[in-house]
Amino acid sequence: VDYIVEYDYDAQHDDELTIRKGDIIKNVKKLEEEGWLEGELNGKRGMFPDNFVKEIK
């Protein structure tokens, strides 16, 4: 499942992704941690907030 970024987010920890509006995040999975998703961007896998992105259908 792929998501498109709607709002910029700067990573706060090493396991998070810095994302920018218009980025496409690939292979996204829901995490047990409420409010977070995990996906791949530019060869890096990491977490990001689910309210900054929208699923591409």
Rank of each mutant, 00 (worst) to 15 (best):
L17Y: 01
E33Q: 13
V28K: 01
D15H: 12
L31R: 12
K29S: 13
I4G: 08
Y3S: 03
K30L: 12
D8H: 08
K21T: 07
Y7T: 12
I24R: 10
I25S: 01
D50R: 15
E16Q: 11
T18L: 03
E34R: 14
F52E: 02
L17G: 00
Y3I: 02
V1I: 10
W36G: 01
I19E: 00
Y3T: 03
F52K: 05
T18I: 04
G46F: 02
F48A: 02
D23V: 05
E33P: 09
L31Y: 08
G43S: 09
I24K: 05
I25H: 00
L37G: 04
G22F: 07
G43M: 12
K54W: 05
E6A: 08
R20L: 04
V28G: 13
N51I: 08
V28A: 13
D2T: 15
K29Q: 11
E32V: 14
I24L: 06
Y3G: 03
K26M: 12
Y3V: 08
L41D: 01
G39E: 00
L37Q: 04
E34K: 12
R20A: 06
I25R: 00
P49W: 09
E40R: 07
E55G: 04
G35T: 06
K57T: 15
K26T: 14
Y9M: 03
E16P: 00
E40F: 11
P49T: 07
E40W: 13
H13I: 06
M47T: 09
Y9Q: 02
R20N: 05
K21H: 07
G22Q: 04
N27S: 12
I25E: 00
D8S: 14
V5G: 12
V53T: 06
L31F: 09
E55Q: 05
F48Y: 02
D50T: 14
D14P: 14
K30P: 10
I24E: 03
K57S: 15
G22V: 01
G46I: 04
E33N: 08
I19L: 15
E6N: 06
Q12I: 12
R20Y: 04
K57G: 15
Q12E: 09
E16R: 03
D2K: 15
P49E: 03
K30F: 07
I25G: 00
K57M: 15
T18N: 09
P49H: 15
V5W: 01
R45I: 07
K21Y: 06
F52A: 09
G39Y: 00
V1M: 08
D2I: 13
V28P: 03
L41W: 10
P49I: 07
F52Q: 02
G22N: 14
N51M: 12
R45W: 12
V1T: 11
E6I: 15
P49R: 15
D15Y: 13
G43L: 09
G43V: 02
N42I: 04
G43E: 06
M47G: 06
Q12D: 08
D50A: 15
K44N: 09
H13R: 13
L37I: 05
Y9G: 01
D50M: 15
F52L: 08
I56T: 04
Y3D: 00
D2F: 15
D50V: 13
D14R: 14
N27W: 14
I4W: 12
E16W: 05
K54F: 06
T18A: 05
D14F: 14
I56Y: 04
R45K: 06
D8E: 06
R20H: 09
A11M: 12
E34S: 09
E40M: 09
L41A: 06
G22E: 03
H13Y: 12
I24W: 05
G46Y: 01
N42Y: 15
M47L: 09
E55L: 08
G39W: 00
G39D: 00
K54M: 09
F48E: 00
D2M: 15
K30D: 07
I19V: 04
K29F: 15
K54V: 10
N51P: 05
E33G: 13
D14I: 14
D10F: 14
G22S: 05
A11T: 04
Y7F: 07
W36P: 01
Y9T: 01
K26R: 14
H13P: 01
D14Q: 14
L31I: 12
L41F: 11
F48W: 02
G39N: 00
E55N: 03
G22Y: 09
V1A: 13
K54S: 14
N27Q: 09
D2Y: 15
E55A: 07
G22M: 06
L31T: 11
V28M: 02
Y3P: 00
K21I: 09
R20G: 03
I25F: 00
G46R: 02
T18V: 07
E40A: 10
V28D: 00
Y9I: 01
I4S: 11
E6D: 04
G35F: 05
G46T: 01
Y7A: 14
T18D: 06
K44A: 09
E38S: 13
E38Y: 12
A11K: 10
D10E: 08
K54G: 04
M47A: 07
I56V: 07
K29A: 11
T18R: 08
K29G: 11
E40V: 13
K30A: 09
N42K: 13
V5K: 00
G46M: 01
A11W: 02
K21G: 07
I25T: 01
D14T: 12
A11D: 01
K44W: 09
K30S: 09
D15K: 14
P49N: 15
E33F: 13
E16N: 03
V5R: 01
I4K: 07
D10L: 12
K26N: 10
R45G: 02
F48G: 01
K44S: 08
E32K: 12
D14Y: 15
I19D: 00
N42M: 13
K54Q: 08
V5Y: 02
V1P: 12
E38W: 07
E6Y: 08
L37M: 11
